[in-house]
Design a protein around this nucleic acid. Structure first.
Lengths: 112, 112
DNA sequence: TCACTATATTCATAACTCTGAATATAATGT
DNA sequence: ACATTATATTCAGAGTTATGAATATAGTGA
């Protein structure tokens, strides 16, 4: 595993991180504000390990910031510029944020 | 092979087309203006079949426009918005357009 | 310390994508 | 019609990525 210096390869790796429906859905959710893993788990209806795996891919690509609060880890977008890319990449199709049900994280419990 | 309607999957397919160094290099060249296959072949130093394959991927993703002129097919960017995405995705690294040598297409012959 | 909960990692296999070689098509001139 | 040139397509094997199951870690409270 060599260090990549070719700018086209670096850029390609960046897009690779974006080239996955579940990861794009996660990013769409995070654009609305930070969220913990359990939150994403409830929205995406996928098992926790799966969510964590996708978060790791996004994190390694440098797309996410994280904040710990007790047991919870809250993820958010590292760079708002990402919003420009996400908007520009799908001119005509709106990206609905899927509805939530049943998350026990502090935010959800407080907000009902 | 079903028709995809999920917006996240559509968007992911879009990024998949971008997630490849050779294709990004092609796009970087096309941002400077249309180019024929032989032109790209000379710049990328890859075999013609390879260039055509990558062009087909970009075309299927809806990124390219084409124009026929005799035996030559000139490709160009379908949507200038793509420039925004390409610029935003690599804030700090300049993308050099590789130097050319030896292309026999009408444009190159005319311009010397 | 122990039990509990939220999140992370590892691993094996399935699924997919890339690549190169060969070949096909399509436009042009003779 | 034939030859030539520019571009497109097909296909198989190599290589990469995704997925689910199992397990590990880390923070919290008793």
């Amino acid at each position: 595993m060599n260090i990549v210096t070719d700018p086209f390869t670096i850029q390609a790796n960046y897009f690779k991180a974006l080239a996955h429906p579940a990861r794009l859905q996660i990013l769409a959710i995070l654009r609305q504000g930070e969220a913990c893993v359990c939150h994403l788990e409830a929205i995406l209806q996928r098992r926790q390990a799966y969510i964590s795996q996708q978060l790791m891919v996004l994190k390694e690509a440098g797309l996410l910031a994280e904040r710990k609060e007790g047991l919870f880890v809250f993820y958010s977008l590292a760079d708002p510029r990402l919003g420009i890319i996400l908007d520009s990449s799908l001119p005509d199709v709106p990206l609905p944020a899927a509805p939530m049900n049943g998350c026990a994280c502090p935010t959800c419990v407080r907000d009902g």
